[in-house]
Design a protein around this nucleic acid. Sequence first.
DNA 1: ACGAGGTCCTGCGAGC
DNA 2: TGCTCGCAGGACCTCG
Length: 277
Amino acid sequence: LGVPELPEVETIVRDIRPALTGRCFTSARLSHDDVLRGVTRRGLLTGLRGARVVNVTRRAKHAVIRLDRGTRLVVQPGMTGSLVVHRKPLTRDESAYAVLRLPLDRGGELVYRDVRRLGTLLLLDERGWRKYDDALGPEPLAAEFTPHVLAEAFRGTRQYVKKALMDQRVVVGVGNIYANEALFAARIDPSRPANVLTVGEVETLHAEVRRILQAAIASNGTTFRDYRTGTGEPGNFQLELMVYDREGEPCRNCGTPLAGTHAIDARITVFCWRCQT
DNA sequence: ACGAGGTCCTGCGAGC
DNA sequence: TGCTCGCAGGACCTCG
C-alpha cells in the first residue's frame, strides 16, 4: 500500500528528473503486458529503445517522461507502483515485481516496479497526450485552481463531497488518503452532497487540500508499504496523518474515537463524527 | 445523475 | 501449522 497520489508522484518526479534528463534508454524490457493501455508490447518497446529523455514532469498522479521522438511515456503508479532510478545493480527484492526496466546510457537504470500491477503505462504521441491531458481537471497547486473553480464543479453534483473531491475531472491528484485528511481539516462530513456546501466551506476545503498536499510533498509523501521516492526511500507523511489508517483511535482534535465506513465508493472513509459536520 | 457493484491484481492478516 | 478467504483500492465499466 501507499497509494501514490499527487505528493508521492511529485516526489518521484523531482527525484528522478536530474538522473533522467538528457539520458538515453539503451534497451527496454517488460515483464507483463497487462499494465499497457492503448499500446502494444512491441509498440512500447520499440518506442522506448534508443529514445532520449527530454524532460520529466508530473500531471495529476502520473509521471510524464517526454522523449525526443515527440512521444511521452506516461506512468500511472496505481496502488503499488514505484519508479526509481537505480545507480547500482538491483538487489533480489528490487528486481522482484520489476515490470519495466530501462537501462540508461552512462550507467544506471530506470525501473518501474509494481506488485499488484494496478498501475498503467501509456506511450502517447502529441495528439494522444493533448486528448489525455484535456480530460483531466485542474492541478490543485496551480494558480487557476481557485475556490471558485472548486465551487463551480461542486455546484452541479449531488455526489458525496468526498467522491467529488476524488473525481479527477473536478481536481486532479487527490486520492483516498488526502481526501480523508482534507475533509477532516476542513471539518466537513464526507457524506454530504457536494452541492450543499457553503461558500465558506468550499473555501476552507480548497485551502486545506492545498495545505495538506504541500505538507505531504515537503515530507516526501506517505508510505505504508510499497510507495518509494525516486531514490528508493520511504516517505514520512504517514507520521502526520490525522485520520487515515486511524479508525477507532482518538481524534487528534477532540479525543472521540474516529469512525470508519465503506459507504462512500467502497473505499475506507475515516472521520470524526463530532468535528466533521 | 447518481449509487451500487464488478473488474483488474497479489500480498497479507485474520480465522478456522 | 496450513489452509481459505476477504481486504486494500485507482480507474474504468455496466446496470438500475
